[in-house]
């Protein structure tokens, strides 16, 4: 019996979310009285894999391949690894990759799937997990009743723990992988902090007035080392790219700190930000609903408040 965690690399490197999911897998294995096996697909140097030992990695299956993500091929590889390692629980991150692969893996293993799970299970026997439902308006507990179980973990809900131990690497064969999709081109975001993994997010709404006004917002983001985001009308208008759209129909984010600048706080926007640890709102309307979701609020005009904020944070950063 074991827990299998799929770990994703970006250009051969692991991210903070990988350490979270590995140490989460270890805690699950402990809770179930079983062992942890990791599966890496792609080319990752041995040192980078070995580093995962400190987060609880026991055995690491390394499927070295240059094959880009293909839902069917990757899911098939993960499902066979699960079968070969006798996994009764398969875990993936609830990100674009996990969303693509976990459902296919679940079908292959004839397993129940609960996605976007918050942290550790409520109980192991029966296996009950907690997750948000109705886009954050409700919390739900679900029991997975099948013998083999698949879950995806909501980012930043389990935290990172370290363990003593060493990782053992075993290469697995990828020669039978075939792909039904062809990658024509890949565009990687470089030099920018990615919204999905940022600790601080600076987000603007229609109250920013126009695309040209984004410069001061980006300046604040620069000072804070933050990712930039926006509300839906802002991306619909083309002021900002779609991948910055946060909310019910865009991205769900869970940073430590979220700035809502000129965002009214519609329920569909809140659906994407309610897992943020701290929310700061700036709005000229004291009645804006965003203030009932925020922890700190400023009633004022962004034209004057935003530059002042940037200065004040710059001062703090310079002194610390």
């Amino acid at each position: 019996m074991s827990v299998l965690v799929y770990i994703e690399n970006r250009n051969g490197k692991f991210k903070k979310s990988t350490y979270e999911i590995v140490s989460y897998g270890k805690r699950l294995a402990n809770g179930l009285g079983s062992s942890l096996t990791l599966l890496s697909i792609g080319r990752v140097a041995e040192d980078e894999l070995k580093n995962l030992g400190a987060y609880g990695a026991g055995k690491i299956l390394s499927a070295e391949t240059d094959a880009p993500l293909d839902d069917k091929a990757y899911a098939s590889l993960i499902a066979s690894a699960a079968q070969n390692s006798g996994a009764t629980l398969v875990v993936m991150a609830h990100n674009v990759t996990g969303k693509a692969l976990a459902p296919r893996v679940a079908v292959r293993l004839n397993a129940g799937l609960v996605s976007a799970v918050n942290g550790l299970p409520v109980s192991y026997q029966p296996f009950v997990v907690s997750k948000k439902a109705f886009s954050g308006k409700s919390l739900m507990q679900a029991e997975i009743t099948s013998d083999i179980k698949v879950i995806t973990l909501s980012q930043n809900t389990a935290g990172i723990e370290t363990f003593a131990g060493e990782a053992l690497i075993e290469k697995i064969d990828t020669s039978s992988m075939t792909s039904g999709t062809k990658v024509v081109s890949t565009e990687v975001q470089t030099g920018k902090i990615l919204l999905s993994e940022a600790d601080v997010v600076v987000s603007g709404g229609r109250g920013m007035r126009s695309a040209d006004n984004w410069k001061p917002l980006e300046e604040l983001a620069g000072v804070l080392g933050a990712a930039t985001a926006c509300s839906r009308p802002v991306s619909d208008e083309g002021w900002r790219p779609h991948h910055e759209h946060v909310g019910q129909t865009g991205k769900v984010v869970a940073p430590n700190l979220y700035f809502a600048l000129g965002i009214s706080g519609a329920i569909q926007h809140l659906a994407g930000i309610s897992s943020s640890k701290v929310i700061v709102a700036v709005n000229k309307d004291p009645e804006a609903p965003i203030f009932s979701a925020a922890d700190y609020g400023i009633v004022g005009d962004l034209q004057t408040v935003l530059p002042k904020m940037t200065e004040a944070f710059r001062k703090l950063k310079a002194s610390s």
Binding site: G136, L139, M140, A142, T145, S292
Partner: peptide, 18 residues
């Protein structure tokens, strides 16, 4: 493969500091 056990309302936020 799974079933709902129950629901909870999400925790209330404390008041916004102005």
């Amino acid at each position: 493969g799974s079933k709902v056990v129950g629901y909870q309302a999400p925790p209330q936020k404390s008041a916004c500091k102005m």
